[in-house]
């Protein structure tokens, strides 16, 4: 068969649809990211010229005490920040979601809407609000604690090296607990009623139904919530900056990757900002996030299959 095939017209419409959005995405998101990775391999001279120095920025960050102490400190703090979210925020979110999904619950929508409210607020606002509430000057929290007999335990938590990071983590948990709650709640709603009925007929108690049926079925969502938490935590900045400033005091006790990145890039007070060292920090953050996402995709998502419900 030798029919003459009409040459297909060039698909201009595809260009039309993809063009503008992709142009912005590529120039403002993809290119800067790749360029940041590139810049991390250079060194900025006094006169502003860039010279290629290979991995020396990274070796400084990881091994040169001047750089590596703050870097490891921030990484370690960031990890603690994340662990608090995983151990406090997500379990509370799960608990609230389970309670919200109990059948015939009254005022379900009000609870849901109100508990989610802090998530909507700006981190900056939340930071200031809690700074005020925890301030020994104002004394709201202190008085409340005296009222319930725990007054002796009150302290200026945000100001102490030992407790500042933990307190900030809890503030962040307070703000964002609505997200895991909402996502897990949606997943719980997606479990067909008949499945729950079946397990009740099979003799499960409420707890057994939760543990053997619901929990495995919402595992994919819990996994997703975890990875979202991870990315958000290793990208956090605003809360620390608002409450403790760029120096993430006291004595860098609350310094995390985001604040370290900011200081390294822009400089702060005595520290000189550096384009290329900033790029190197960003690159390491990128790698951390990449490793986290990859671990999630390959270890977690592969094992926990999505079940066609």
């Amino acid at each position: 068969m030798t029919t003459i095939r009409a040459k297909k017209a060039f698909p201009w419409h595809i260009v039309f649809f993809l063009g503008p959005g992709l142009l912005i995405y590529l120039t403002v998101s993809v290119y800067p990211l790749l360029d940041t990775l590139r810049l991390s391999l250079y060194n900025e001279e006094m006169n502003g010229d860039l010279t290629f120095t290979g991995l020396s920025n990274f070796s400084k960050l990881l091994f040169d005490v001047v750089w590596s102490d703050p870097f490891w400190n921030a990484t370690w703090n960031n990890l603690k920040f994340f662990v608090v979210h995983m151990l406090v925020q997500n379990p509370i979110g799960l608990l609230l979601a389970v309670l919200l999904s109990s059948p015939k619950l009254r005022m379900r929508n009000s609870y849901r809407t109100l508990i989610f409210l802090p998530t909507m607020l700006s981190v900056v606002i939340v930071g200031f609000v809690w700074q005020l509430l925890l301030s020994p000057l104002w004394g709201i929290t202190e008085n409340l604690m005296w009222d319930i007999g725990l007054g002796n335990y009150f302290d200026a938590w945000l100001g102490k090296e030992s407790s500042a990071l933990f307190t900030l983590s809890l503030i962040s948990v307070w703000q964002f607990v609505g997200l895991p709650m909402m996502l897990i709640y949606a997943a719980l709603l997606g479990i067909p009623d008949e499945l729950i009925d079946a397990s009740v007929v099979d003799g499960s108690s409420a707890w057994q139904t939760f543990y053997h049926i619901k929990l495995p079925l919402i595992m994919p969502t819990i996994g997703m919530v975890s990875i979202l938490t991870f990315v958000a935590n290793f990208n956090a900045f605003e809360l620390i900056y608002t409450v403790k400033g760029a120096l993430a005091g006291p004595n860098f006790a609350t310094d995390i990757m985001g604040t370290l990145f900011y200081r390294t890039f822009f400089g702060f007070q005595l520290q000189q900002g550096s384009l290329t060292m900033g790029a190197a920090v960003a690159t390491l953050m990128f790698l951390v996030i990449l490793v986290g996402v990859a671990l999630y995709l390959f270890l977690f998502q592969r094992r926990v299959q999505r079940f066609a419900l």
């Binding site: 993809l18 992709l22 995405y25 120039t27 403002v28 998101s29 993809v30 290119y31 800067p32 990211l33 360029d35 940041t36 810049l39 990875i227 990315v231 990208n235 900045f237 985001g258 990145f261 890039f265 384009l275 900033g278 790029a279 960003a282 690159t283 953050m285 990128f286 996030i289 990449l290 996402v293």
Partner: peptide, 24 residues
């Protein structure tokens, strides 16, 4: 390829490119 590229943007925060964005 474009699909993957766009999908990666969901997970990778645009903040990480700040150095070059300011430049740009």
């Amino acid at each position: 390829l474009i699909g993957i590229l766009v999908a990666m943007g969901i997970m990778i925060p645009i903040r990480l490119g700040t150095v070059s964005i300011l430049d740009l």
